[in-house]
C-alpha cells in the first residue's frame, strides 16, 4: 500500500543548487535523529545547517543564526516543541519562517495543535527522506518569494517616498512661482 517511489536517485536533490545557501536549524533531543537529519541534509546539498539537542538553547541559536527553515521535534525534555513554535512565531513577526514539525506522536490532536501553534508542515516519524526534502524545497521556494516580495515592496516604498518628496518639492516650487 505504501507505494515506495522507485529509482529514487534519478529525482534526488531537485533544486539543490537553488537552496544550498539557505540556513537550516534542526531541533531534536534524540542524537540519532539529529545525526540522521544531518546526513540527509548533507546529501540534499544543504551546507548551512545547525543542530540543537538541548531545547533550552534552541531559541538563542535561532535568534543568532536567523535560519530560513526550522526542522522541529515536539516531544523534548525541558522545553517542548510547542513553546518553541510559539517563540519562533513571535520572533519571526511578519516575515515568513517555515517550520516543519517532525514527531513520532501519531495523535491527530497533536498534529492539529502543532499546526495551530504555527507549524507550517507536519511530518510523522519515521519519515520518508525524499518527502522531507521535497517539502523543505517547496517551503524554501515560498520563503524565497516572500523575501523577494518584501525586497520589492521596500524598493517600491523607497521609490514612492522619493517620488512623493519630488512631488512635494515640485508643489512648493509651483506655489512659489504662483506668488
Amino acid at each position: 500500500m505504501n507505494s515506495e517511489p522507485e529509482n529514487v536517485d534519478q529525482r534526488w536533490l531537485p533544486n539543490a543548487a537553488l537552496f544550498s545557501k539557505m540556513k537550516i536549524v534542526v531541533i531534536d533531543d534524540e542524537p540519532a535523529n539529529v545525526a540522521l537529519l544531518e546526513a540527509m541534509l548533507d546529501e540534499g546539498g544543504y551546507t548551512r545547517v545547525k543542530t540543537v539537542t538541548d531545547s533550552r538553547l534552541a531559541m538563542e541559536i535561532c535568534v543568532d543564526f536567523e535560519p530560513d527553515l526550522v526542522l522541529l521535534d515536539l516531544m523534548m525534555p525541558h522545553v517542548d516543541g510547542f513553546s518553541i513554535l510559539e517563540s519562533l512565531r513571535a520572533a519571526a513577526g511578519e516575515s515568513f519562517l517555515p517550520v516543519i514539525v517532525l514527531t513520532a506522536d501519531a495523535n491527530e490532536t497533536t498534529k492539529l495543535r502543532a499546526l495551530r501553534a504555527g507549524a507550517t508542515d507536519f511530518l510523522l516519524k519515521p519519515f520518508d527522506q525524499l518527502e522531507v526534502l521535497l517539502r523543505m524545497a517547496n517551503l524554501l521556494e515560498t520563503r524565497r518569494l516572500h523575501l523577494q516580495l518584501d525586497t520589492q515592496l521596500a524598493a517600491y516604498a523607497d521609490a514612492v517616498r522619493e517620488r512623493t518628496s519630488e512631488l512635494r518639492e515640485a508643489q512648493v516650487q509651483l506655489q512659489k512661482s504662483e506668488c
Binding site: E30, A32, N33, A39, E43, A104, P126, F127
Partner: peptide, 17 residues
C-alpha cells in the same frame, strides 16, 4: 507508538541513506 516510532525513524532513515 511514539516510543517505537522514534528508534524506527533512525532505522528506516539510516537504511535509506
Amino acid at each position: 507508538s511514539h516510543e517505537l516510532r522514534t528508534p524506527l525513524n533512525a532505522i528506516l532513515g539510516f537504511g535509506q541513506l
